[in-house]
Simulated scan of single mutants.
Amino acid sequence: MKKRAAVALILVGSFALTACQSSSSDPSVRAHNAEFGCMAGTVGGAIVGGLIGSTIGGGTGRLIGAAVGLGGGGYIGNRLACG
């Protein structure tokens, strides 16, 4: 149950971070916000993927699952946030 709560908390935090971005007509502000969103998506995806991957298997399998989840989650988060 603790893992589900942690995953839910991370998902809510990730969505909250993306809501903090402001829409501005200044191109430098927009570029900064896009860069922040891209990084937040990559890191958030890696964290969530690692947590989900660590629930698979046991012992060494859990470590391998976490590593694969980190890579896969980071990649998916990057693709979703960076377009």
Score class of each variant (00 low, 15 high):
F36P: 00
L9W: 04
G73N: 08
V12H: 02
R62L: 03
I47N: 02
L80M: 12
I52C: 10
T55A: 13
A6G: 01
A19K: 10
G37F: 02
G71W: 05
A40M: 12
A46L: 04
A46C: 04
T18P: 00
L17S: 09
V7Y: 01
S22K: 13
N33L: 00
A66V: 04
A81K: 01
L11H: 00
Y75E: 04
G13C: 10
G72K: 04
A66R: 06
T42W: 05
G45Y: 03
M1C: 08
D26K: 05
M1S: 13
A40S: 14
A19W: 08
A8N: 05
G69H: 04
M39R: 09
I56F: 11
A16C: 10
K2P: 06
N78W: 14
S14P: 00
A66Q: 08
I10W: 09
V12D: 03
A19E: 12
G77Y: 01
A19S: 12
F15W: 06
T60E: 13
V12C: 07
A46Y: 01
N33Q: 12
G13Y: 07
V29Q: 13
G44I: 03
A40F: 07
C38I: 04
I47T: 10
S54L: 01
L11W: 01
A6Q: 14
F15Q: 02
I64T: 13
T18V: 06
H32A: 15
R62T: 12
K2H: 11
G74T: 07
N33W: 07
F15M: 08
G41L: 00
T55L: 14
I10L: 15
C20R: 14
L63Q: 14
G58F: 07
G83A: 11
G58D: 14
G37I: 02
N33S: 11
Q21V: 12
C82D: 13
L9V: 12
S25N: 14
G57L: 03
G72T: 15
G53L: 04
L80A: 10
G57V: 03
L9N: 01
